[in-house]
């Protein structure tokens, strides 16, 4: 059991799409360990995605949210919250819904507290005017590891605990979402946006569109988009893909040449009431906003396996192709890659 303390700031910044277009975002920035007298220097440095929050069942987690304000929108005095989406048996104080508890005003802090009990893939996001704040970028991935998780022992390097058939060699999270540039522009210009007119032009994995999804090296244009999604593995390895849909649309994700073994959904091992193993294979994963799906792939042959949206019209960057919600899965001969040092990337 560990006492985990993290601190996130709510602020704004800009992101870049592969066509060079720049888009205003709201988001979170990691303030963990940042001295109090330096946190204001993190204003305007939000990232899309927000930092990966990685915890373990049994941990005590204190998450401090600090509202840093929006340098680009000094007029805006919106509060913010953290909603751990899917946390079981939550109490309203830490649920992050302004209408049912507390929101954090500009310049203030609030501590959310969690003792995760169920492993799996979750998400967190701001729940203040969520249609605006989620679309604007206040979204992050959240992994809860089983209590017996031990990456040094293959039997205990699992998504849902030893003996659940969820062992993996490598893991990646893929948070998918969309971007409507008109909405972002209107918010930046302090204009109203009619959310019933929502119409995205970019489709993102981990805050980036293809081919930026492939860029593993630090990239100046992508300074506020820290997570690539190039998936790399050795032949014969089990690769856990944690899909998170924090867009507003349903999506159909597929990998040419690799079936998807679906082992968990919504941070629940796929099991019936009496332990029936409901894991199953699909070629196309179709899922909606606010859902997570845990998938294990087991590529046997070295190759490049494209991952893309089977709604082919979405594999575009504002009309240019290829683009959008695509990435590569590069599989090398067995033994080529060293063990993955940590989760994700």
């Amino acid at each position: 059991m560990t006492f985990v303390q993290v601190r996130y700031g709510a602020t704004d910044s800009f992101i870049t799409m592969p066509d060079g277009s720049v888009h205003y975002i709201f988001g979170f920035v990691d303030l963990t360990g940042v001295p109090e007298n330096e946190i204001f220097a993190r204003r305007g440095k939000a990232t899309l995605l927000a930092p990966l929050l990685e915890v373990r069942v049994g941990d005590r987690v204190e998450l401090t949210l600090t509202n840093l304000g929006m340098p680009q929108r000094p007029d805006l005095d919106d509060s913010h919250t953290i909603h751990w989406h899917g946390f079981p048996n939550q109490i309203s104080l830490w649920d992050g819904v302004p209408e049912t508890s507390i929101a954090v005003p500009v310049g203030r802090d609030f501590i959310y507290y969690y003792e995760p009990k169920d492993p799996g893939t979750y998400m967190y996001h701001c729940h203040f005017e969520p249609v605006e704040h989620i679309q604007m970028g206040m979204v992050g991935p959240l992994i809860a590891r089983p209590a017996d998780y031990n990456p040094a022992n293959p039997l205990f390097k699992t998504a849902y605990g030893a003996g659940t058939g969820t062992e993996f060699d490598r893991e990646y999270f893929l948070l998918i979402s969309e971007l409507d540039p008109v909405a972002h522009e209107q918010v930046h210009r302090v204009q109203e946006f009619d959310w019933s007119e929502y119409r995205p032009a970019y489709w993102l994995i981990n805050g980036r569109a293809y081919p930026d999804t492939l860029h593993t090296a630090p990239d100046g244009d992508l300074s506020q988009q820290p997570y690539h999604s190039l998936i790399q593995a050795n032949a014969g390895e089990k690769v856990l893909l944690r899909f998170i849909n924090l867009g507003f649309e349903e999506h159909a994700i597929t990998i040419l040449g690799l079936p998807l073994r679906i082992i968990g959904r919504d941070a629940q091992l796929l099991r019936g009431l009496h332990g029936e193993d409901l894991s199953h294979w699909r070629d196309v994963l179709y899922f909606g906003a606010g859902q997570t799906v845990d998938v294990i792939i087991e590529p046997q042959q070295p190759a490049l396996y494209p991952l893309f949206n089977r709604g082919y019209h979405k594999n575009t960057n504002a009309g240019a192709t290829p683009g959008g919600m695509m990435t590569h899965i590069t599989v090398y001969p067995a033994g080529t890659l060293p063990p993955q040092p940590g989760p994700g990337f």
């Binding site: 819904v97 009619d194 959310w195 019933s196 507003f248």
Partner: peptide
């Protein structure tokens, strides 16, 4: 009592003609 929101996570659907809050949301 505690309240927990129940809503569509396709968030434009929790507006009334684009205005939050509204739409497909209850407690």
């Amino acid at each position: 009592e505690y309240y927990f929101m129940l809503h569509s996570h396709s968030e434009p659907q929790i507006t009334n003609w684009g205005e939050f809050p509204g739409g497909m949301m209850t407690m």
